[in-house]
Nucleic acid binder design. Structure first.
Length: 583
RNA sequence: GGUCCCGUAGCUCAGUUGGAUAGAGCAGCUGACUUCUAAUCAGCAGGUCCCAGGUUCGAGCCCUGGCGGGAUCACCA
């Protein structure tokens, strides 16, 4: 539920409210506020109020109501003029008021510290659940970008949010990797890029195991794998030592990527730490009669909820993914006293979470209804889904390297000698972050992304770098033209339609972020930032800031530009995308 | 078969909770840098919003039924 934080809409709602009262009609201010929208284009108006809902009360046709209503609204500090257009009342606003209520608060930061939403439970967002002993691929990057952006947006909207991650450091995938290293690998142990090497071992292992299914070798393999798993569980033996060492290699890779992306977690939960306790918990469910024994396994029959049977303890006594999530869900609420728990996990786990939440509910864990699986669709390649198991993945490392190289070669090489080499390297990384994160988050979470490398490396048009470029461009203008510090401007001089279009767009920032927070959809923000940048670039290309008829107008345009830059920077920050000072 | 998601321009996607003439990018074509950053901008072209009903002042959006694609459904995670 959004608070009424938009001063412009509030001002318009007041004027409409007064005009309606004069005609003897009373509406709640919320209703009016919520109905105020944008005019279709800047020639028709800046904001619009539709009169359809008034038809019943007035017993008149909406166009007639719009006409009478607009006649009742007097221009004031905010409202420059009012026009009825069919069933709509269209408002033109004064640049002076827009400057005071929008641009100035943006420039001094007040604008970004408003409370946007009413219900702000303390929540935990869990995201990034990579498996050790596998390579991180671009699919993991979507999860990382989405979860990180979501947390920042939720915090901005006023929620207290704790971030957590849940890496999978135990399980059969680990055994397959260690199995291959020990029994089949002939390469020397690596000195560098150990995480990536491990990922290859996993792929080779799972391919070999798949190959040998149905062969005499199968039984031997099975025995060897089970031996490995036993050692890991007993926490002793050569495989346990190898596990400890190689596990760290993967963690080092995770940390490299997290550092690069600027992501941190308040809490790391490990599958290995909840494994044993989760099985113990499942046994209590059996005792309580919530779980039953079936076909040698122990689980909960959820068929009456259309969720099938949820196995919690395998016939060999081991727990499963669902078992661990049962334990983890409870720990989260205990450890941090949260009121809401969000899981950013790909859509293929939907049924898994439905089962987990339902079992918790049946077990009497009331917070289960505050657990929410934020399912997003996965990233796939043009020729089908990615699979570490099969080895057809694009590693995050490879994407980053290729993109950094491309950015330097195509755009930054021209500055070589002029800029320090370190800055070229840094800016290339900033741009790469912009391209990758923006690309991952711009698509609606429940639509899949078909990853085509060449499209991603081409960063023209709608992209993170477009917005970063606009920021750097404004920065350059300010550097060159802002000879003395401006702290105020005569906003009333900004009468060009494109200048007003910018102000109107700026005013919408908080509405968009609030919407993104409500819907858990950061793509509303990416879209907004792109449109804001686009609006500015349109203005920039048709109006000179440097050459104006007066110094006052130049000052106003400079401050307007600066407000755009601040807004772009703050918006990108919510996506954890940095901006370069020049590019 | 059950459940969930998707279907909008050649391709990739928006569409602010039901509002005015459905918008961007890529690809294609035409223009704009001795000027404040051309990683940009302006313009052209491109549409049965999967189909059929329904709800109402109004539907790309909501409801019902189809069609097409994807995911998932007992000891992997």
């Amino acid at each position: 539920m959004q608070l009424q934080h938009d001063d412009i809409k509030l001002g318009l709602a007041q004027a409409i409210d007064q005009a309606l009262r004069k005609q003897g009609v009373e509406l709640s201010s919320e209703t009016i506020y919520d109905q105020i929208g944008k005019a279709p284009n800047i020639e028709m108006g800046h904001f619009a109020y539709p009169c359809f809902d008034l038809a019943k009360q007035f017993r008149k046709a909406p166009p007639l109501i719009a006409k009478e209503l607009s006649a009742q609204i007097e221009p004031d500090r905010l409202i420059a003029s009012v026009e009825a257009a069919g069933p709509y009342v269209n408002f033109f606003v004064n640049p002076q008021a827009m400057g005071d209520l929008v641009a100035l608060p943006i420039l001094d930061g007040r604008f970004f510290r408003k409370d946007l939403t009413r219900d702000t439970p303390k929540m935990m967002v869990e995201y990034s659940q990579p498996n050790t002993h596998k390579e991180l691929h671009v699919g993991h990057m979507r999860n990382l970008s989405l979860g990180d952006a979501l947390i920042r947006i939720l915090q901005y909207a006023g929620n207290e949010v704790i971030s957590s991650t849940f890496p999978g450091d135990v399980g059969t995938h680990v055994a397959k990797c260690l199995w291959y290293i020990k029994y089949h690998n002939t390469d020397p142990m690596p000195d560098t890029e150990k995480g990536a090497w491990l990922g290859r071992m996993y792929t080779l292992g799972s391919l070999k195991l798949e190959d040998e299914l149905g062969s005499p070798q199968e039984a031997i393999n099975r025995q060897q794998l089970s031996g490995i798993l036993s050692q890991l569980e007993a926490e002793e033996g050569e495989f346990f030592d190898l596990w400890k060492e190689t596990r760290q290699w993967s963690i080092d890779l995770f940390n490299w990527v997290y550092d690069w992306a600027g992501v941190t977690f308040d809490k790391w939960y490990w599958e290995s730490e909840v494994d044993v306790p989760s099985v113990a918990y499942a046994k209590t469910l059996l005792q309580r009669g919530i779980a039953i024994e079936s076909q040698g396994a122990i689980g909960v029959d959820l068929s009456e909820y259309n969720l099938d049977f949820c196995v919690l303890i395998k016939s060999d006594g081991h727990g499963l993914y669902a078992t661990k999530d049962l334990e983890l869900a409870r720990r989260k609420f205990e450890d941090f006293h949260i009121e809401r728990s969000i899981y950013v996990v790909d859509v293929r786990q939907s049924q898994h979470f439905q089962q987990v939440f339902k079992v918790l509910e049946l077990a009497g864990f009331e917070e289960a209804e505050q657990c929410y699986h934020l399912a997003y669709n996965f990233v796939e390649l043009p020729d089908g889904p990615m699979s570490s198991r099969k080895g057809n993945i694009i590693a995050i490392m490879d994407l980053i390297r290729q993109m950094v190289d491309r950015v330097i070669r195509e755009y930054l090489e021209q500055y070589r000698g002029d800029w320090p080499d370190a800055e070229i390297e840094e800016v290339a990384n900033i741009i790469t972050k912009g391209a990758i994160k923006y690309g991952m988050v711009r698509v609606d979470p429940n639509k899949k992304i078909v990853f085509e490398l060449e499209n991603w490396l081409n960063i023209r048009g709608e992209s993170g770098p477009y917005i970063q470029y606009t920021y750097a461009r404004i920065n350059s203008i300010l550097r060159n033209l802002n000879d003395h510090d401006l702290d105020s401007a005569d906003w009333s001089l900004l009468t060009e339609p494109l200048e007003l279009a910018i102000l109107v767009k700026l005013a919408d920032f908080n509405n968009v972020v609030a919407l993104a927070a409500e819907q858990y959809k950061p793509n509303h923000l990416t879209r907004y930032l792109y449109e804001l940048a686009q609006t500015f670039n349109g203005f920039y290309n048709s109006h000179s800031i440097k050459h104006t008829e007066s110094a006052a107008l130049k000052g106003a345009r400079l401050l307007l530009s600066k407000a755009v830059a601040v807004c772009l920077r703050e918006g990108l920050a919510l996506l954890n995308i940095p901006v370069p000072e020049r590019m």
